[in-house]
C-alpha cells in the first residue's frame, strides 16, 4: 500500500512521508481496516435479510411495491450525516447509532433490486409451477428466489459499496473504522500528518470497496444456478 509514493509531501503538513507514517501506524491501520470491513459486512448482511424478507412481503402488491420503491428513492436523497445528527439525541454516540443508519442505506438498493427481481420472473414460469401443484412457499423458494437471485445480488453489490462509504461517515458519531482518520484530519487541518490521515482513509476505504466487489464476483459465480449463468 502506497509503497511507491514514499516521498509524498502535501503542502499543509510537515509530518512523515506517507510510507513511513503507514509503517509507524501499521497496527492501528490494520485494526481499523478490519473493523471497517467487518462492520460494513454485517450491515450488508442485515440489509440483505431485511430486503429479501420485505420484498417477499410486498412484491405481489402493485401498491406496496410502488410505495417501497418510492421510499427508496426518497431515502437516497437524505444526507447520511443529517440522519446521524437526528439519531444522536435518541441513541447517543455509540455503535447503536451507526449500525441502523448504515443498514438503512444498504437496504435501499437491496430492497429495490429484490422487488424488481422477484417481479421480473416470467409469469409463464409461475403458471407452470402453480399448475404442477407447487405451494406458494415452494414456488417462492425453488423458483422465484433462484430466478431473481442475480438481480438481488446486483443490488447487494451496490449496497456493499454504500455501506463501506457510510461506515466511514459513521466515525463522526462513534470511534469506529477508517473514517476516524478523515475526521481527525479535518479537525486538525494544517497540523502534522493530516495529509497522511486523509490519504490513508481514502486509500484503505477504496481498498475495502474493491475487495468487496471482487468478493461479489465470486459469490455470483458460485451461487448463480448453472442454467441461468451468463
Amino acid at each position: 500500500m502506497g509503497g511507491s509514493d514514499g516521498d509524498v509531501q502535501l503542502a499543509f503538513g510537515d509530518g512523515l512521508p506517507f510510507r513511513e507514517w503507514v509503517e509507524a501506524y501499521q497496527d492501528d491501520l490494520i485494526f481499523y481496516t478490519r473493523q471497517h470491513a467487518l462492520l460494513s459486512l454485517y450491515c450488508v448482511l442485515a440489509a440483505a435479510v431485511i430486503a429479501v424478507v420485505l420484498a417477499m412481503l410486498v412484491y405481489r402488491s402493485e401498491r406496496l411495491s410502488g410505495l417501497a420503491i418510492n421510499s427508496v428513492s426518497v431515502g437516497f436523497t437524505l444526507p447520511s450525516i443529517a440522519l446521524f445528527g437526528i439519531l444522536i439525541p435518541f441513541l447517543g454516540r455509540n455503535i447503536a447509532t451507526v449500525f441502523p443508519v448504515v443498514v438503512l442505506y444498504s437496504l435501499l438498493p437491496a430492497l429495490r433490486n429484490a422487488i424488481v427481481g422477484l417481479q421480473s420472473v416470467d409469469p409463464a414460469m409461475l403458471d407452470a409451477a402453480r399448475g404442477m401443484g407447487m405451494s406458494r412457499f415452494r414456488m417462492l423458494w425453488q423458483i422465484e428466489l433462484p430466478l431473481a437471485w442475480p438481480v438481488i445480488l446486483a443490488g447487494l453489490r451496490v449496497s456493499a459499496q454504500l455501506a463501506v462509504g457510510i461506515v466511514a461517515i459513521g466515525a463522526i458519531v462513534y470511534d469506529v473504522g477508517l473514517g476516524q482518520y478523515a475526521f481527525s484530519a479535518l479537525a486538525n487541518l494544517g497540523s502534522a500528518n493530516t495529509a497522511n490521515e486523509a490519504l490513508a482513509c481514502v486509500l484503505f476505504v477504496a481498498a475495502i470497496g474493491i475487495a468487496f466487489d471482487l468478493a461479489f464476483v465470486l459469490v455470483r459465480r458460485f451461487t448463480t444456478p448453472r442454467g441461468i449463468r451468463v
Binding site: 416470467d122 409463464a124 414460469m125 403458471d127 407452470a128 409451477a129 402453480r130 399448475g131 404442477m132 401443484g133 407447487m134 405451494s135 423458483i143 433462484p146 430466478l147 444456478p225 448453472r226 442454467g227 441461468i228
Partner: peptide, 21 residues
C-alpha cells in the same frame, strides 16, 4: 395444490424452469 399434482399441465410457453436441469 394436491389436486394439481395429479393432473398433468402443459402450456404454450412451456414454462420449463431455466435454472433447473
Amino acid at each position: 395444490v394436491k389436486l394439481r399434482r395429479k393432473i398433468g399441465y402443459v402450456i404454450q410457453q412451456i414454462g420449463l424452469f431455466p435454472h433447473l436441469s
